[in-house]
């Protein structure tokens, strides 16, 4: 996690956006490693695939379309206010930690209210060895439905934002659905 801190700071400092994107990927990757250590294998798997993979690819793609260098600047006053806001937020968070259960604490409420049923009964009720999958796809499957729709929204949203209509030049190149049957009237 200290490594993540280092990477995070590097992201804040470095102005070459290309490097920043790569660092962001590395950040996710280290995060994924931390997840494994913390027993969250599924999450780690996903974070590695998404954070390190998809996000980075997307960022690089964006950079290819825009520019690689971040401009110098950003008034001093702006960063001072930003720093203040961040400091206050952080302080509230740290304040909040004081009454938190200790790391790894077995008797914390968090592990004893809802979760025991998942751990103890999901085998009989759902029949899946992977509890995460059971919870994800059955107990809380509605969340997952929502999640699927989020990604669906994002995909169609990107279509709507960057879709064909903007680029008249390349209309004949028939990207998103330019060549297929319906709605092609332009």
């Amino acid at each position: 996690m200290l490594m993540m801190g280092a990477v995070g700071l590097a992201i804040a400092r470095i102005r070459d956006l290309f490097a920043v994107s790569m660092l962001s990927g590395i950040f996710s990757l280290i995060g994924a490693a931390a997840y494994v250590v913390l027993d969250a294998v599924d999450v780690a798997f996903t974070e590695a695939a998404v954070g390190a993979g998809i996000s980075t690819v997307l960022m690089l793609g964006t950079l290819a379309l825009t520019t690689r260098k971040e401009k110098l600047g950003g008034g001093k006053s702006k960063s001072t206010t930003a720093f203040l806001v961040v400091a206050v937020t952080g302080a509230v968070l740290v304040y909040g930690t004081f009454d938190m259960p200790r790391y790894g604490d077995k008797i914390a409420a968090i592990h004893h209210h809802v979760v025991p049923r998942y751990i103890e009964k999901s085998g009989e009720e759902v029949g899946m060895p992977n509890i995460v999958t059971s919870v994800l796809a059955s107990y809380r499957s509605f969340d997952t439905l929502g999640e699927v729709f989020v990604i669906f929204t994002a995909a169609t949203g990107v279509l709507a934002i960057l879709g064909r209509a903007r680029r008249r030049r390349e209309d004949e190149e028939a990207d998103e659905g330019g060549s297929d049957t319906k709605g092609a009237a332009s």
Binding site: I54, V57, L65, T66, T67, A155, R167
Partner: peptide, 20 residues
């Protein structure tokens, strides 16, 4: 859904004309 989304998003990005 996820696979199709990934491909769609990527295609749209890659299909852009590019900046510089």
């Amino acid at each position: 859904t996820v696979a199709a989304s990934m491909i769609t998003i990527f295609n749209v990005f890659a299909g852009q004309s590019g900046g510089d």
